[in-house]
Amino acid sequence: MPEPVATARIQGSSKLESSRHADLEAVQRCLAGDREAFAGLVERWQDRIYGAIFRMVRDPELTRDLAQETFLKAWSKLASFQGGAAFGTWLYSIAVNQVRSEMRKRSAKKYGAPVSLEALRGADDERAFDPADAGPGAVEKVATQEDCALLLAEVETLDPDHKEVIVLREFQDLSYEEISAILEVPVGTVRSRLHRARGELRERLSGRVL
């Protein structure tokens, strides 16, 4: 039985680790005054950071702001980066803190606005709707996108702690250890949060999608 999921997880995590040395080298160059090196770091990490924030806040404008602030904070705090953790982990932790800070400001109201399917399609990778993808699985894929809209709407309503682990684990392919380092909680806590989040999603989507 093929295990595409496990393969993706491993590849994702290894990708994170594989860039560690390159990141450290770029950080050293940044500290030496090489601004272009930081530009390279931004290029390397912008999609992941932007995507993670977007999955948490689902507001493109806010996502842009928070992502930009994440990188600017990294730029200003680069000297404090010790290299003990991967640069990506450090960057994710900044992003998560940015989102948390923003959520605290908006704690009185529901986080984010409802997103229509069209908006989701517009915001997400349009390759999912590329006619060139039409083939044996095309119909199933489109159906999956509609399911995704429902799923993301339910993710939106999750408890912030659960949402964080779902996003980092399911959408960002980070390992438990990396999530543990980012969220600064034990691995067991990450695991339990993730299990509860999945169970909650399963219950909410039961009878509609599942």
Partner: peptide, 29 residues
């Protein structure tokens, strides 16, 4: 149901940063 949920989670497409995002970050820096 869990396996179906896993399928949907994996089907969620990645989100890419908008064009020019890196430039705007560097400009802000």
């Amino acid at each position: 149901a869990y396996r179906q949920l896993g399928t949907i989670l994996r089907a969620v497409p990645p989100v890419a940063a908008p064009a020019g995002f890196a430039d705007s970050v560097m400009g802000a820096a």
